[in-house]
Write a protein that binds this DNA or RNA. Structure first.
Lengths: 192, 192, 192, 192
DNA sequence: TATGAATGAGCTTTCATTCAT
DNA sequence: TATGAATGAAAGCTCATTCAT
């Protein structure tokens, strides 16, 4: 792995566990086993490193999603919606993803990091919005824009609470009642 | 207002707008027009100040809620649920509350602040859980525990997204569809 | 006990165990259960408190010595010398005295405290010198001035090492060989 | 000279003259003409700087001693003892050494510094003990362990008093009577 | 590319001291 | 006498960043 990648990997880990402000460049160097000069050679400053980290994380997530997405081709909208939600809850339950979820919430809710990443965050939100809208516009009972916002928000909220309360969280039951709620709202029958 | 209160007020404002880690005691002193010594006279360290701030915020919120709660006495469970949700969305829409919402998400998602406030956060979550459960247990079609968790999580998520995207956010329509979803899930008719 | 005395007692204990510079007025207040105002009411500043502490300690030591001294009246010089040395080693071995020995060495060897107490320290040294000289001048083989200085210095050194190495220190044997050395130097027979 | 050495040199001088607790890192920086960052780059904290200073001083002293020691090879024990004592009194009388003597007493008698340096102080004491014992064990009338402790303690005491009272101190006469005392104790004739 | 010594501003915290009550 | 809130200078230490090598 290149030094640049070592740095990004260590930064992800340390930013996520201790927070951006509480992670010094020094500690990243120690963790990544590189010198301070190396960090500033590859990234002009700490903010740029954070942006690189955010972009890297988005790429990793995209790869995973792209692996699954094609299977949805050609299915009716309702099935695609349910499949998408199932997939989202599935990745949410993967414990190795918890850290990156936590990290993202941190970046969103901290004023400084939010400002640094503003454009990237907005892009990312727009993509999620498009993904849901492209499905919902095919369902006449749906309010494409509003329901997309609502879906994203609610999933965010569930992920937020889940990753922080982990063990005791009834995530499986929530998933089922969550999907059923939407089926009913859109005028379909409950599952099971 | 006592100096101690001046300090807490300034801390709330600055912590919320710049983040806990990015707010120096010095800047709080300047803003509150007190000396550095005064801060450490009243709070043993910055962490304790944060806890005092969190407790103060919870008290203010409680007062508001207690003003409204009594009106719910004696009503049927479903009506109490809808009233509660209406009230939550109402306060969420009050722009003067946006800052404190943002602040809370920040505190929850930042590992350091979360650790400092762990007990207080847990208490607060438990209280919200109890509030929803005491209503839902009277509705046979509800799954008291699960639905309470889900309600809290979804409201969190909507608030999170709303306070960050503000102007463009279709909060009113979301509120209505949100409440309708729950009515349908619990086997009732949609409103309107 | 008066507040003033409470303060002095606490100051002795804390200065001795943590050092003068590492003992804050605040910690003395906590320990003595008095307010900060009380300390500055009785002592104009921290230096004056130190002087009061030093004077108090000297008084306590004097009282002990004066209890024993009269028994030496009328004895021949050599016997008075031996008795005095025996008494000094006896008090040195009292564990409750170790703290005040340590404290004194601290005050002597720290430039700041030494400066604050200069006059008191010099007085005290002069008194010890006089005490030994008044005995030694009656012994023709002694060099009154020099041997007094030497006795004081050596006793200091033994006390210094003893209080720091405590348990393993062969203080009893040292005492005997120490006294014998002086008997031989002054032309007398060894004891025992 | 490297910056690291500049820092150590300045620290020795300032610690010795003002005391460890009364010497700020800032003042060391000014004196050594380096930045604060440089100090903390080379020493993880003030305590570690003190340890480095102590170790450096011990090395310097060792070099001096090693220059003289070989001349003692092969001589009878009594002569080696006298030579060693002569040498110790000689270095004690060198005014440029007074500062480091004072400094050492300060470090020994201050609870905080003593704790920081505990292992180094104990090592150093053990070495002195070994040095005396290796000589005394060849003299049948000596009590190797006890007399070594006593010698160290008494020399300490004399040095302590000498460096603090300097000018008026009859150090030369004390030296002679000191050595004679030991000659007599060990069953030999006085010198001169 | 990469190193790590060096910088200096800024941080949290401590503390002797003052003063209105 | 006694309190304790308030002050502000100064402490130890951290850290992003620069730069000669």
């Amino acid at each position: 792995m290149s030094k640049k990648n070592q740095i990004i990997q260590s930064a992800i880990e340390l930013f996520a566990t201790h927070g951006y402000e509480n992670t010094s460049i020094s500690s990243i160097c120690t963790h990544a086993e590189v010198s301070k000069g190396a960090v500033f050679h590859h990234f002009s400053n700490k903010d740029e490193l954070l942006r690189a980290v955010f972009i890297h994380m988005a790429e990793v997530i995209n790869e995973v999603e792209n692996d699954i997405a094609p299977q949805n081709e050609g299915l009716p909208a309702l099935e695609r919606l349910v499949n998408l939600l199932e997939q989202i809850f599935l990745t949410m339950a993967m414990t190795e993803r918890h850290l990156s979820y936590q990290f993202e919430f941190q970046l969103l809710s901290q004023p400084t990091t939010r400002a640094i990443l503003k454009d990237l965050i907005d892009d990312r939100y727009q993509k999620m919005l498009d993904q849901f809208q492209s499905i919902l516009q095919e369902i006449p009972t749906a309010n494409g824009v509003v329901d997309s916002h609502m879906l994203i928000a609610e999933i965010d909220g569930i992920a937020l609470n889940y990753v922080f309360y982990k063990n005791d969280y009834p995530i499986e039951t929530i998933k089922n009642r969550f999907i059923n709620k939407y089926l009913l709202l859109l005028g379909f029958e409950k599952r099971k």
